[in-house]
């Protein structure tokens, strides 16, 4: 019990530490949205559209009732972490996977992308494959719990989208993960 508590406190600390980094990376999301040459979308048009969607969503339902966003709900936790060169979903992340599986079974229209990632050591292509296998491991765990294949999309970013860019064990651990992203969230 105690160990678990310490573990989650450490994890929380880690997340906080890395979230301060994310502030710096904030523009990244905007830049990615634009990718002008690639999607041929007008960046000016794309951004207001995004905010419009958010406003209407806020009008449609009370935001505080959305279990996916409620910080007190386990569904707001979206990252499953892995050991180096491993794709096994560790016991400590079972409750998180089970909660999302339960939600998806209860909401057959909901869809998730499971985004696999790896730390930046070693081969980029092997890490791409490893990120993919991590996302497949989470998918399989959800399938076992009754989630329909059609609700899940697996994708790997390998080591290409690190959340943390320092060469430290804490950073590498943060980057070895699968993120659960619901359709419409990104």
């Amino acid at each position: 019990m105690n160990k678990q508590l310490i573990g989650s406190v450490l994890l929380a600390a880690l997340l906080v530490a890395c979230s301060s980094k994310q502030v710096k990376e904030e523009p990244k999301a905007a830049v990615e949205e634009k990718s002008p040459a690639v999607t041929a979308k007008a960046p000016e048009a794309a951004q207001p559209q995004t905010s419009t969607a958010q406003t209407s969503a806020a009008n449609d339902q009370n935001v505080s009732l959305n279990p996916l966003k409620d910080p007190n709900n386990i569904l707001s936790k979206r990252s499953i972490y892995f050991d180096f060169d491993k794709d096994e979903v560790k016991a400590e992340f079972r409750p998180l996977v089970e909660a999302h599986a339960k939600y998806l079974v209860a909401h057959p229209d909901a869809k998730v992308a499971l985004q696999g990632n790896a730390d930046d050591r070693g081969s980029r292509e092997y890490n791409l494959a490893l990120g993919q296998r991590r996302s497949v491991a989470v998918k399989k765990a959800m399938n076992v719990l009754g989630v329909n294949d059609k609700q899940i999309e697996t994708v790997s970013y390998g080591e290409e989208k690190p959340r943390c860019s320092d060469k430290t064990e804490a950073c590498w651990a943060e980057n070895r993960r699968v993120d659960v992203i619901y359709s419409g969230e990104e």
């Binding site: 830049v31 990615e32 634009k34 990718s35 040459a37 690639v38 970013y157 989208k161």
Partner: peptide, 9 residues
């Protein structure tokens, strides 16, 4: 080639 997304391999 220039891109705002990763290019590898």
């Amino acid at each position: 080639l220039s891109s705002t997304e990763p290019i590898i391999s």
